[in-house]
Amino acid sequence: MAGAEEPVPDFIEQTITFQDGQSFEILKPLTNYRSCHDGTPKEARMVFTCRRISPDASTEEYVMKVKTQLPAEGQVPIVHPSTTTEHELKALTTFHNVKSSFAPQLVGFHCQAQDGRGPLPGGFQTFTVMTKMPGYALFGKYWNMSTQDRDEIIPKAAEALRSIYALGIEPVDRGMRNVIWDPDMKQCSIIDFELWNETQEIFADDKTELQRWGLIRTPPAKDHWAAWNSMYR
């Protein structure tokens, strides 16, 4: 299921059947297994590519995010998604309803109790399957591109963000790892909606918004707090 460089815990099965009858086969990991701290209760996550194997088998690749409740003082096992998973499901459903081409769409969701192999038996294990956006993340690549290539990406990133804001969703985790560029279709998309704010407004200034994403250089901040605040407000 995975290479030695990304070991997969034995409590994550290779094939998962959802309550609606869909079954998905995990193909390969996109991240390692690690604790995440934004939501409650305490949990860990790992992200994979996957494909649907029933009821209608498909060769199309999707992205599956697996989350597992972790032991924590004062918390008991629950079979219910975390706050960040609930938040992401709401965004993915919105994108699905409008058939957005600028963000992932929800394909399926499943929640079950961990068995005795899990870190907190009886606690939740959730599986969120979403469409896989074409292209690659800009993190680690963008500022090595030519000025011409970056100038091509900038208006496309603004277009994607404006489309998402128009749906009442303001991304909070602004980072180039969450900006996907498809050089064939000349289109940007945005991923990772565990954290977002409801909004009734669309940003007025492309430059300022894209500076927050690191796609346009910004003047040095006065201190660390000013730098953080400019990113997350």
Rank of each mutant, 00 (worst) to 15 (best):
W181A: 01
Q211E: 15
H224I: 15
F203H: 12
A113P: 04
A158N: 07
R217A: 13
Q211Y: 08
P219C: 05
V98I: 15
Y165G: 00
R51A: 07
Q112G: 02
L27N: 12
D115P: 00
P9G: 09
T49I: 07
T49W: 09
N144I: 01
A160Q: 04
Q14G: 08
V47M: 11
V76S: 14
V107N: 02
L70E: 09
R45E: 01
T59V: 10
F124R: 07
P155D: 07
M185L: 13
P155H: 13
D182V: 04
S101L: 09
I153R: 10
I26L: 15
I216N: 02
K132Q: 12
V63Q: 05
Q69L: 06
T147K: 15
K67W: 01
Q19K: 15
F109A: 04
F139V: 00
I154N: 03
D151R: 15
H224G: 02
D115C: 02
A103D: 08
I190P: 00
G39T: 11
S100F: 03
D10W: 09
C188F: 11
W196A: 03
I191M: 03
P81D: 08
V8H: 06
E159W: 06
N197D: 08
A4R: 11
T83S: 15
D223W: 12
G214K: 12
H80R: 13
P41R: 11
V66S: 03
Q19P: 04
D182K: 04
N197M: 05
L92N: 01
V129P: 04
G135D: 04
E5V: 07
Q14F: 09
G135E: 06
D173W: 12
Q114W: 10
K67V: 02
T31S: 13
F193N: 02
T85K: 03
D151Q: 15
G21H: 12
S101H: 13
Q22D: 14
R45I: 02
D151Y: 14
H80Y: 15
T49G: 02
T84D: 10
M1L: 07
P183S: 10
S100G: 01
V47F: 06
D38H: 13
G74F: 14
Q125E: 12
I12Y: 10
M231T: 14
V172M: 11
D182W: 05
L27W: 04
N144L: 10
T208K: 14
L167M: 09
K222Q: 07
D184Q: 12
A221C: 11
G122D: 11
V129E: 04
T83Y: 07
V107T: 10
Q211W: 09
V66Q: 06
Q75P: 00
D205K: 11
G214D: 08
A57Q: 13
G118Q: 06
P119L: 04
S82Q: 09
P171S: 08
V98F: 02
T94N: 05
K141L: 07
N197V: 00
Q114A: 01
F139E: 09
N97S: 12
I153C: 04
S23D: 03
K90P: 00
M46D: 02
K207A: 10
L161H: 05
Y165S: 05
I26V: 14
M231F: 05
I169G: 03
